[in-house]
Design a protein around this nucleic acid. Structure first.
Lengths: 155, 155
DNA sequence: CCTCAATGATTGACATTTTCAACGGTTCGT
DNA sequence: ACGAACCGTTGAAAATGTCAATCATTGAGG
């Protein structure tokens, strides 16, 4: 198959060694695309995607986030959060509770079923993460997370 | 149970400390969203986005990638590459050359104007990258790139 | 107490991006 | 030479992203 006579194709890694190979934005984009795809695939059997999984996670965590906080944290438009929460609420995984301290705001809490599903989904998510980071030592894993946090939460 | 004595609002970083705070997929997504936005903003003055910048970069690098290679490398559908290349070609920044070794394939090469614009855009891109990584040492910067490469190019 | 600007959620419209299936031209193995 | 596989292209459908307008509520200042 491959290995045509001359230097025909840019070897499988000629592109990798190009300028973009050192471009952080590109590396992030590609790493994100791959991990997101893997995560979505793994979460699909639970009827979740990375997005809905994230929302469910925060609800199940008892953090009682408002939708606005959710929107900012997940970098989504508030209207997208509405749709996301609608989906989870229809499946009885989360509930909207109007915040007694500010009746404009909705606070998200997970139902028992929600916490239950989350627990299972989290295992799948963790398995994926470990699979992705198989070639990396636990210390490097933690170091990577730390550096990403710096980028993800500047200031 | 929520014996909610006081409905504490999630402090500005209660969410950060939740389960998701250690979720690699989430951190990647958020870091990617922020850096992508920063990159797009910086590239806008050159009439580029991260996507078109990437294509232009590979063309300007003399790697002579085919559109299919571009698609796989950038994790895009081939049809998206068509649109991307159309845009750059109409601005006379790149040219499609049918690969003499395989006349089905188009090889991308940058024009002089293309290389010129890329040189300028690259400066903007580098400035952004340095700004984003201001809080980390150069060694950590390199380490981050290395770890991301592992995720971005498994196998 | 009574405005009034600001805020949270929601809706609906619109643009952009993603994802697929189909098609003509070309290559390659058999 | 045949047929399967592959490249680029097109077009359409689905999913996402972006924005402005609205309602209810809040909080500040007169």
């Amino acid at each position: 198959m491959s290995a045509s006579g001359k230097t025909r194709l840019p070897g499988r890694d000629a592109l990798r060694d190009s300028v973009l190979g050192g471009d952080l934005v590109f590396l992030l984009a590609r790493a994100n695309a791959l991990t997101l795809a893997a995560a979505n695939a793994a979460l699909a059997e639970h009827g979740l995607k990375a997005r809905s999984y994230s929302v469910l996670a925060l609800a199940a965590d008892g953090v009682r986030p408002t939708q606005r906080e959710l929107a900012e944290f997940l970098r989504l438009d508030p209207s997208q959060v509405v749709a996301l929460v609608d989906g989870l609420e229809q499946r009885q995984l989360v509930e909207r509770r109007t915040d007694p301290a500010d009746r404009r705001a909705n606070v998200l809490v997970a139902t028992d079923a929600g916490r239950d599903l989350f627990a299972r989904a989290q295992q799948a998510a963790r398995a994926v993460e470990l699979g992705l980071l198989a070639p990396v030592t636990p210390e490097e894993h933690e170091r990577l997370a730390g550096l990403l946090r710096l980028l993800a939460f500047p200031g």
